[in-house]
């Protein structure tokens, strides 16, 4: 039982920050580029078009 915990911690050292960074990065792109709330849409409108995100 204790050994399992030890292995999980060791394996997670490399992968956890990578997974978290990918989720955080995609989250930022989704909020700035894709969420349709009107304030966000209006503020980011021009760069959404320029970056090729579906905008309207």
């Amino acid at each position: 039982m204790t050994t399992k915990t030890f292995e999980t911690v060791q394996t997670g050292t490399g992968i956890l920050p990578v997974v978290f960074a990918i989720i955080l990065g995609l989250g930022i792109v989704a909020i700035t580029g894709h969420v349709q709330a009107s304030t966000l849409h209006d503020a980011a409108h021009d760069v959404r078009h320029a970056n090729g995100f579906p905008c309207h």
Partner: peptide
């Protein structure tokens, strides 16, 4: 917003 989008992309690419 362009800087924000690129920080998001950078997080994914550097990961």
């Amino acid at each position: 917003f362009q800087a924000l989008i690129f920080v998001g992309y950078a997080l994914v690419m550097i990961a």
